[in-house]
Design a protein around this nucleic acid. Sequence first.
DNA 1: AATGGCGGCAACCGCCTGTGT
DNA 2: TACACAGGCGGTTGCCGCCAT
Length: 293
Amino acid sequence: MGRQPCCDKVGLKKGPWTAEEDKKLINFILTNGQCCWRALPKLAGLLRCGKSCRLRWTNYLRPDLKRGLLSEFEEKMVIDLHSKLGNRWSKIASNLPGRTDNEIKNHWNTHVKKKLRKMGIDPFTHKPLPTTTTIQLPDNEQAGGPKPTPQQSEVADQDKEEAVVVETPLQSTINDQAKDGDKSIHAGLFDSMEVNNDFCIDEIPLIEPHEILITCENSSSSPSSSSSSSSSSTDTTVGGRFLSNLLEDLEFATTFDYNEIISSIWDDDFVTSLDLYNNCDDNSNIMVEPPLL
DNA sequence: AATGGCGGCAACCGCCTGTGT
DNA sequence: TACACAGGCGGTTGCCGCCAT
């Protein structure tokens, strides 16, 4: 007898989320907080699996999410953390405020892997690629007999790396950069897992629940032309747009009093900060501290 | 201008882990 | 200790837009 599915899948909707569904989810969570994902869809009037709701909220609807490409520094952080933690994306994400594991995972698979290979670094081992004339095949097509799956390889690699900490070429590069300048940020980044510029990668979450960092995105540089071009009401998905745009898309102004709900749940300071964020148009960072729900 | 290939990313699936009983 | 359940995590899939031809 198999495990019971997380929810009754009969009649449940799958695929991209519609603005209406997003609205219901946001409305419900802002009103009731995050609790019991399994029961949430029913209570919120959604024909979705609880897991799907959780994913949608944590990856796209949370107000503390940053959007857009990872900055150079964030990318370096990801590479370094990956060299130490392997594919533990959630752990990596916990060290990058406003970034989700899914986002980092996607970024790794689509951008960083290629970049590292171009630099002659094996994205799995973080060590220099062998300088043979062998044609570099995709990960799962490496020549040569039965091989472990990528996951198995990575696990093995991780085990090795846990035993022996080796500074990768990239780390050296970054450490060199740290010597040249910007020491406040880079200093000690790769020193150890214990102390890392005031945070411990292993144990201490970088963001406290009450401390959410929101970066103002340049409104003219929305993540991709695709999302901006599809921002008309004909597009049913909200895609990667950030909350302010999202709320706009959802037509909260006319159909959903977002401010009222916010005010009823979060305190005035946070509401003011959120408002400030929503209206800002430069690239400054604003610290928004929502009270614990 | 049409179209086929490719890349990026949102979302799903299934397994794992933590917690309560 | 064993079991059930909910939530979390990582791998994978499939859609969609962009770009080259």
